[in-house]
């Protein structure tokens, strides 16, 4: 049982990294990966929302959507939007400093496709409560890892002499391509496909 859970975790973290092999959550990946500090904080906020979404999606799927499966998309998106709103209120109350540091990135998590994909994958693979939470933790940390690696590389690239045409998005994509190549080396780990 615990080996299966570890498999789910490592698969979501490295082998099937949400950002680098499923192309999920690319907008913040390219938009926010300019600075290491911000990238890390955004990754952690993402992970937190993923955990809560996983819990909520599991409860919804088990108790409500059984009776109306065609409402899945609408129900999930509303849950995600209200979760983000709720997290925003809690953080604002509990830690105003963190709230200011996260700024606009907090509400934008709503339209991050990685969160929605997490809920959909969890449903289509039939994960239970515990498996879902482990999956969410792995996926969230995987997104954080990709963000931090990317931010580190881009901070380094700022200091090097790059042709003017390559600066900006084009170079970010090429860097991401190489990163993604490197992550392909994890394929087959723990029998994950």
């Amino acid at each position: 049982m615990s080996a299966a859970l570890l498999g789910i975790f490592v698969s979501a973290l490295l082998v099937n990294n949400f950002t680098l092999s499923y192309f999920l959550g690319l907008c913040p990946f390219f938009g926010v990966s300019g600075r290491l500090q911000t990238a890390f904080r955004l990754g952690m906020a993402n992970t937190f929302v993923m955990l809560i979404t996983s819990l909520a999606a599991w409860a919804l799927h088990t108790y409500v959507l059984i009776h109306a499966p065609y409402l899945m998309l609408i129900a999930y998106i509303l849950v995600i939007a209200s979760t983000v709103q709720f997290v925003e209120m809690v953080i604002k109350k509990a830690s105003p400093a963190l709230f200011r540091a996260l700024g606009i990135f907090l509400p934008l998590i709503t339209t991050n496709c990685a969160i929605m994909a997490l809920a959909l994958f969890q449903t289509s693979r039939g994960y239970g409560l515990l498996q879902g939470l482990v999956f969410a933790a792995g996926a969230g940390l995987g997104v954080t890892l990709a963000l931090v690696l990317m931010a580190g590389l881009r901070e380094e690239a700022e200091l090097s002499n790059v042709p003017a045409l390559l600066r900006g998005t084009a170079m970010s994509f090429l860097i991401a391509g190489v990163l993604s190549l490197a992550f392909m080396g994890f394929a087959g780990l723990f029998g994950g496909s």
Binding site: L20, L165, T169, A176
Partner: peptide, 21 residues
């Protein structure tokens, strides 16, 4: 590799480069 995930990033990177040029 072009139909695997890294190829996606690389192809879009090169296409963006052509558009910028």
């Amino acid at each position: 590799v072009m139909i695997l995930p890294p190829g996606g990033f690389l192809v879009v990177g090169v296409l963006l480069l052509l558009f910028a040029r």
